[in-house]
Amino acid sequence: MELLVETITWTDEFDRSILSTTVFAALLSMLRALAAAILLFVLAFTLILVAEVKASRSIGWLVRLIIDALESVPAFVWIIAAVSALSSGGFVIVTVIFAFAAMPLVFNFLSGVVRNIMHQPYYLAAIALGVGNLGLILRHIIPNAVPLCMPPFFYVVGSAITVYGAIGIFGFINRRSLDLGVFLLRGKEQAALDPLLLIVSLSAYLILFVLLRWLLLSVACTKR
């Protein structure tokens, strides 16, 4: 109870309410992660369509090699390298690099889904009827793949939240920024004297991920 009262009334070293800044930072994290996840899915889908529908063996092999290389290094390492080299932890740069670095997460899943759809009778019938590539993509692949993409979409949102947090924890963002990662970093530094910021920002992460997990499970149940 005492901690709750403290959380509501306490301010940080910049005279900002800890509770309201944490809620705002959590919302911001979620929105950024959603934007990054949408961009990633659009890119991955385009790449898979090029690799699968165009069905060139060499393109497929090349894409596989690129995915292997990206997957062999944790996504946040690519991002901190980019942020370091470009001297900017801005939203656009991080989102674009995330879209490439986290590509393996989505690519492996989506390519399975697209391949599965391409072996379905309705797809083969459409080919037999002479439907073009664009028609196949718009009428068969996208409408059938989108519902299956929802559970991994929430995984990617979680992964994006992690990456944005990592940049804050590694100190690449201004300390006044409304970012949960920066809050964790500051909370860690002040932990011995006042653990409130650490506990509140950590709780915000846990609440965000409980929410995401709940959404994921709900979507999975609805699909069944």
Binding site: P74, F76, Y155, G158, I161, T162, G165, A166, I169, L184, K188, A191, A192, P195, L198, I199, L202, Y205, L206, F209, V210, L212, R213
Partner: peptide, 25 residues
């Protein structure tokens, strides 16, 4: 299942928070 879903930095911060609350930093 939930643990595998969490960000990679959460376990370390949770352990740190537990140690802080036990005055064992």
């Amino acid at each position: 299942e939930f643990l595998t879903f969490l960000p990679a930095f959460v376990p370390a911060f949770v352990i740190l928070a537990v140690m802080v609350s036990l005055n064992q930093t």
